[in-house]
Amino acid sequence: MKKLLWIVFVGLVFSSCNRESNLITNTGFAFGRTYTIKYYALDAETDFKDEIELLLNEINKSISVYLPTSDVSRINDGDNSIVVDEHFKNVFLKSYEVWTLTNGEFDPTVGGLVNAWGFGTEQPIDNISQKDIDSILQFTGFDKVTLTKEGRIIKTHPQVTLNFSGLSKGYAIDRIGAMFESNGIKEYYIQMGAEMLVKGEKFKTVHDAPITIENPDGQNPQQLSVKFTMENQSLGTSGNYRRFRVDSETGEHYVHTINVKTGYPQQSNVLSSLVLSTGSAMEADAYATALLVMKLEDAKQLLKKIDHIEGFIVSADADGDIQQYTTQGFREAEKIEGQFKQ
């Protein structure tokens, strides 16, 4: 049997657009990623850099788990006095929608299990037991959290924690786009990490997403170049970057996700996902994350169910060979150059 391959990098290389006198470019850092924003202003003196930074700071104060004083961090720490703002409400409600449509596979409360199994940012539990799992499951599940009409978060267990990183970059992109629209800016390109929103004819162009696959021994990496045209669309991507374990019985390398119902890791054959949406960037971001934690057949069914999103999925079959699944709409927008070698 061939060794399983896994995704180690998904990058985006974007073609540049023709410069005009009113083309403004802003760059910076937010949500742990760099961002690049281009837009055609009404005059050469217009620059929204300060407004963008203020907006990103406002969103961080609401939903960033990396900011100890943010609303979500304080709620996670047990502060019951917080009345959440519109940013928090928006990501909470979208998370609930995606959680429902994915039958709970997309779950902002799974952080405790991810950490316990050694796939998170905190120290894993050594020799994890069923008792440990049962304990963590008490505070895992988005059904254990309620947003009241007054804007307060009610948790069934004090240790339930929320993490909206699966859609936060997409949400920030949407808010920047809305700010542009309210100021009469109709042509813009917003890219944060691997998420993007493109609006206007001037930014209709071909984008290139090189996906690199590496063998478990680190030798002979393989690459596929996925080129696709974006026009008034958003893009979300997700990939299992070196997140694998070795099966002690077979010696096979497997990418893992956490089954939020059992509390245990499960083998996942989905390695990378790209989602194009005519809706929001938050939605594209969330569904790209969701596709990555779902079984391949379930992921295909989800894409068929939602008519305004299109997907490109890289997976591995039982022998470790790389497979590609592309929806019709994505196939019409993309051109594959090269292929994975078997």
Rank of each mutant, 00 (worst) to 15 (best):
N163Q: 04
S15P: 15
T25K: 00
A209S: 09
V114D: 02
A286L: 01
D79M: 02
G218A: 07
K38F: 08
E105P: 11
I63D: 05
N103I: 12
V10K: 12
F92R: 02
H207E: 15
F330W: 10
T46L: 03
N103Q: 12
G320D: 12
K186E: 13
I133A: 03
I125C: 05
I185N: 10
V260N: 07
H157W: 07
A172M: 11
V255C: 08
D321A: 15
Y189G: 05
I128H: 02
T100H: 15
Y188D: 03
T262Y: 04
G151K: 10
S268I: 10
G120D: 01
R74T: 00
N57P: 01
Q301S: 13
G193K: 08
N163H: 00
T289S: 13
V91I: 07
P210W: 05
E195A: 14
F48T: 02
M282F: 12
M179T: 11
I7V: 10
S81T: 06
N269W: 08
D143M: 07
V65I: 06
D307N: 15
T237G: 10
T229D: 04
E332M: 13
H308A: 06
S129Q: 08
S70A: 00
S62I: 05
K89S: 04
G111Q: 11
L302Q: 10
A41D: 01
K49Y: 07
Y66K: 06
T25C: 00
F139D: 14
S225I: 13
K2F: 11
P124W: 09
A30V: 04
D79R: 01
G239Q: 12
K94C: 11
Q339T: 15
A318Q: 15
R74N: 00
Y188K: 04
S280N: 03
S129T: 13
V72T: 09
G32S: 01
V270Q: 07
V84K: 10
R242A: 14
T161P: 00
V98R: 12
G120A: 05
I336G: 09
Y171N: 05
L303A: 10
I176Q: 04
W117C: 04
S165C: 12
Q138Y: 06
D132E: 11
T121E: 13
Y96K: 09
C17T: 15
I136F: 06
T36Y: 02
A290G: 12
I59W: 07
L224C: 07
T229F: 07
L101Y: 02
T109Y: 02
T289D: 11
T102I: 07
F88M: 06
K304S: 13
A333P: 13
L23S: 09
D77V: 02
T148H: 06
T121A: 10
F340G: 08
A178P: 14
Q233F: 03
T121S: 12
E214Q: 14
